[in-house]
């Protein structure tokens, strides 16, 4: 029994791999930005005194966290189709990934909000800041700072999980790989390359979050405290 690897046969398809990787990164980017917004709003919603809003946010978070991503993607895909709405696979994928990561973001952000000492909020109230101003100026950044590692890991996981979007034929990295391996009959080599590309994408994202952290938390930069 001998292992015979033929990388050149697969590597000559590099433009397709690159296009797939780019699309994966694009999916991850939009879902991260939109999911961060959705999740933060849901986390704020869960903390409001309005029982209806808080309840709705809780149902959303718990439903998503207790169903598989692939099922969520199919629900969005076939749900929109049965309503007669026609969207590209990319749009559907971004929507489904956003809904998914939004729920996890909400849980993480809630932990961040709860970690803000009561005294911070009272000090801000004492200065006559409004509820919204307090969230924006006093709570948001320190809360993000407290959960930044958990948050960024979640977004990297989302990028990796986006491979299931191949199931609705979004042309992301895994879909490209499936296509190339059935074309070349070189499945092992194909998925080795894909695995390497996912590692590179993860590193790219982590580097991006590191840079974003420097921008968001100037105090860390000034005082040299690592996140």
């Amino acid at each position: 029994m001998s292992l015979q690897l033929d990388f050149p046969a697969v590597l000559e398809r590099w433009p397709s791999f690159l296009a797939g990787a780019a699309l994966t990164l694009e999916l991850a980017f939009f879902a991260t930005v939109l999911g961060a917004l959705l999740g933060t709003v849901a986390a704020v919603g869960r903390g409001t005194h309005n029982a209806l809003i808080a309840g709705a946010c809780k149902v959303y978070v718990e439903t998503i966290r207790n169903t598989p991503l692939l099922v969520q993607i199919f629900l969005v895909y076939f749900g929109l189709a049965s309503l007669g709405l026609k969207y590209s696979a990319f749009t559907v994928a971004v929507a489904a990934l956003t809904i998914n990561v939004g729920a996890y973001t909400a849980e993480i952000m809630r932990a961040g909000f709860e970690a803000i000492p009561r005294g911070q909020i009272e000090a801000a109230e004492g200065l006559a800041l409004s509820r919204l101003q307090i969230y924006w100026h006093i709570i948001l950044l320190p809360a993000i700072e407290k959960v930044y590692p958990a948050l960024t890991s979640q977004f990297v996981l989302l990028m990796l999980a986006s491979s299931v979007c191949s199931q609705i034929s979004a042309e992301e990295l895994t879909a490209v790989a499936n296509y190339i391996q059935s074309d070349t009959y070189r499945a092992f080599e194909t998925y080795i390359i894909v695995a390497v590309l996912y590692v590179i994408l993860s590193l790219v994202m982590r580097a991006g979050f590191w840079g974003l952290g420097l921008l968001l938390f100037p105090r860390r930069r000034r005082l040299g405290t690592p996140l």
């Binding site: 911070q120 200065l127 800041l129 409004s130 700072e145």
Partner: peptide, 23 residues
């Protein structure tokens, strides 16, 4: 308050200017 409660992510200047500007 007893526990100062300065906003840790803001400089002293930003701590002071926040409310006059925002409010």
């Amino acid at each position: 308050f007893q526990s100062y409660n300065l906003f840790p992510h803001l400089t002293i200047e930003q701590n002071i200017t926040l409310a006059p500007c925002a409010v």
